[in-house]
């Protein structure tokens, strides 16, 4: 347990979190994370073997609502917050490999949507 954070490099976590960490901020970030993770080891003092995990504070039962169609928000309204648009579409950088544009669809490379 003790060296947990050292084994995972900051880079691996940053990739999983889709965060670019500047080389200048990496050392401090790592140091502070290690401090926090160290403090979380407090939980090791508890006897937890036979305890059922509690995933939610909501003690009520899950409830199914009637499936009733409702008006949706206007597209124009929703597009107002998009960083870039083209017509009624959200514009994004090219996600399909340029060299394979004439290839069959299944070979297109949709890179890493989180």
């Amino acid at each position: 347990m003790h060296d947990a954070f050292h084994e995972k490099t900051l880079a691996t976590l940053a990739r999983l979190a889709r965060l670019r960490i500047d080389p200048g901020e990496a050392a401090e970030l790592r140091e502070k994370l290690e401090l926090v993770i160290e403090s979380l080891r407090r939980l090791d003092e508890l006897e937890l073997d036979d305890v059922e995990p509690m995933t939610h504070a909501d003690a009520g039962r899950n409830r199914l609502d009637e499936d009733v169609p409702e008006p949706a928000m206007a597209v124009d309204e929703l597009l107002r917050n998009a960083p870039a648009t083209e017509g009624r579409h959200i514009a994004v950088p090219k996600v399909i490999d340029a060299g394979r544009e004439d290839g069959d669809e299944s070979s297109h490379d949709h890179r890493g949507r989180p």
């Binding site: 940053a14 990739r15 979190a17 889709r18 965060l19 670019r20 960490i21 500047d22 994004v92 950088p93 996600v95 890179r111 890493g112 949507r113 989180p114």
Partner: peptide
């Protein structure tokens, strides 16, 4: 890449 854009946007 699209992933680079996510990571820089979030940073």
């Amino acid at each position: 890449s699209l992933e680079d854009l996510y990571a820089r946007t979030r940073a």
